[in-house]
Amino acid sequence: MEKVMSNKLVIALYVLPSLLLIMGIIYMPIVLTGYYGLNEWNGIGEMTFIGLENYKHLIQDSTFWSSAFHSFELALFSGISLIGYLLIALVLSGKIKGANLLRKIYLVPMLLSSVAIAQLWMKIYHPTNGVLNSLLMSLGVDNPPAWLAEPSIVLLALFVPIIWQYAGFYILIYYAALKNIPESLMEAARIDGANPWQIATRIKLPLMSEVIKVTIVLSVVGSLKYFDLIYVMTDGGPNGASEVMASYMYHKAFRSFDFGYGSAIGFFLLLVCLVATYLIRKATASKETIQYS
């Protein structure tokens, strides 16, 4: 066993192609981004090496810190919403009638591209004839807010579609994980008189713990570098109220032609993700890996 499972040739064969691919396509850009970040460069022609100037600027850049704060808020919201996704997946994986159909319907929105989702939610949030405000006005609210124009609420208004957009992704993963738990385990628990809540918390969740950890990392990292809907729906506005790290990076690099500074933001973002992942792994580390028996 030991010998077979530590066959170097097989390991190399399994790992190297993928490793080489991400070295070329992901690490090369990461290294270059790090390098660009040490330069003043407008993206055209010569670069000027300026050392850590961009990072010094970054530390004093209040717009950057507020966008970083928005990204953290999103990460927090996404993290919390995982609980909701998990609950839905628990219900759908149960033996209820029509679960199969319901599950399919629940996941349909995740097929939509960001373009479509952004258009849909812009129609929902439209200040005068949007779905939401029409509803509020018919309920007697006199002056419902302009959701995407009020700096104080725009961020929350954007979080809703973002969380909704990813619901399918996580429900799908949780659902697959739940379906992967051998039925015999649950059967045994039922015979022992466990109620559904106990089965969920004592059997299902522990068995899914690795999957849950992974989704926490995915959702936090995904949120920290989130860009799509914000870019289309508000472009970081109004007055930077919905600017996040990735959109700020884009604005600096591609709009202001400050590619060096943009790269510094990109690299910093990567470091933030790295630290966040490390902390999550650390906080969720378990002494032993739980296995099906």
Partner: peptide, 27 residues
Amino acid sequence: MRWKGRSFVLGLFMVGLMIPVHSTLIP
């Protein structure tokens, strides 16, 4: 499988999640 450095390699792949897409375009 059992080999040295597997968690390091796994870490390498995980870092791949973290770069914003617009940073990669020019390189």
